[in-house]
């Protein structure tokens, strides 16, 4: 009898722990929606998304987040252009080319890279990369989208490398043997066969890397210059969605239009990350089938 009660209690506890995470996610989501949707009573959804000016404390406030969306996209695009090819190439090197000793060393390095807090990366970028970019391009400030992209690429790299590497290792050995037994060189085996087998996983890895970049806040806030204007080149300051929330939430009056607008930005970010994660998931599952 006692045993039965014990079983019952333990089962309930495990159930509660499991359900708790779902409940918390739902609560956060509801809160975000409730606070964010209020803004659309005063500003239309279309005006909010496509407004060219973000002057939240002017009178009346102008709450258009197009410059912020463009800022986020530009920084992300730059980071992707740098991190995806580099990440995939190093994943192939680690999985297929490197000797076991080099492989172990590289894998630990990648793990260390992912362990560096983003604020530290931002700080390092601020004192090294930013002056360098300024001097290199002879521009008035080094706080640019370009600098942000480089630092964010570093953050996306560990994700891209480790997940791509898993995907490459998961390619059945028989494919490789088959190609080599046909007289293919190592390189031919790699780019004609293994890459096809690993493709879904590599795409998923890239998407998750992009997801990480778009949600990143601290480093971009420190090195992109935070000017809320629609960017025309990589070499000008931009402000991202994330940095806007982080920088302004502390100064805004609770319940003001500005406050609700920041939550609405949160919803936009949520939707973007959600879409990216779903895409990544689709590719990962395609891999398994």
């Amino acid at each position: 009898m006692l045993k039965k009660i014990k079983e019952f209690i333990i089962e309930r506890l495990i159930f509660l722990s499991g359900i708790a995470s779902i409940v918390f996610v739902l609560l956060i989501f509801i809160f975000l929606l409730k606070e964010g949707i209020s803004i659309f009573k005063t500003v239309g959804l279309f005006d909010f998304l496509s407004g060219r000016f973000w002057y939240p404390i002017s009178d009346p406030p102008k709450l258009g987040i197009l410059p912020l969306i463009m800022g986020s996209l530009l920084v992300t695009l730059g980071a992707v252009v740098i991190a995806v090819p580099l990440g995939i190439a190093s994943a192939f090197y680690i999985a297929e080319v490197a000797s076991p000793r080099v492989r172990d060393a590289l894998k630990s390095c990648v793990e260390v890279l992912s362990a560096i807090p983003s604020v530290v990366l931002g700080f390092i970028g601020m004192v090294t990369l930013v002056p360098f970019v300024k001097a290199l391009f002879k521009i008035p400030t080094g706080l640019t989208a370009f600098s942000g992209s480089i630092m964010l690429a570093f953050m996306a790299l560990p994700t891209i490398i480790s997940i791509s590497e898993d995907a490459i290792n998961a390619v059945p050995r028989q494919y490789k043997e088959g190609a080599i037994a046909l007289g293919a060189t190592h390189w031919q085996t790699l780019y004609r066969v293994i890459i096809h087998g690993a493709m879904p996983g590599v795409i998923a890895a890239s998407m998750l890397g992009i997801g990480r970049v778009i949600g990143e806040t601290m480093a971009v806030m420190m090195i992109t210059g935070n000017a809320a204007v629609i960017p025309t080149t990589f070499l000008q300051p931009v402000r991202t969605l994330t940095a806007t929330i982080a920088a302004e939430m502390g100064e805004t009056v609770r319940g003001s239009e500005h406050y609700y607008a920041l939550f609405a930005i949160g919803i936009v970010l949520f939707v973007i990350s959600f879409l990216i994660n779903v895409t990544a998931d689709l590719f990962l599952h395609k891999d398994k089938r």
Binding site: E177, G178, A181, L182, G183, G197
Partner: peptide, 21 residues
Amino acid sequence: DFVKLRKKVGMVFQRPNPFPL
């Protein structure tokens, strides 16, 4: 010359292993 050797001496494996192409 491994490329020539393996071209001349082909191999069929236990598990059929066509490429994912």
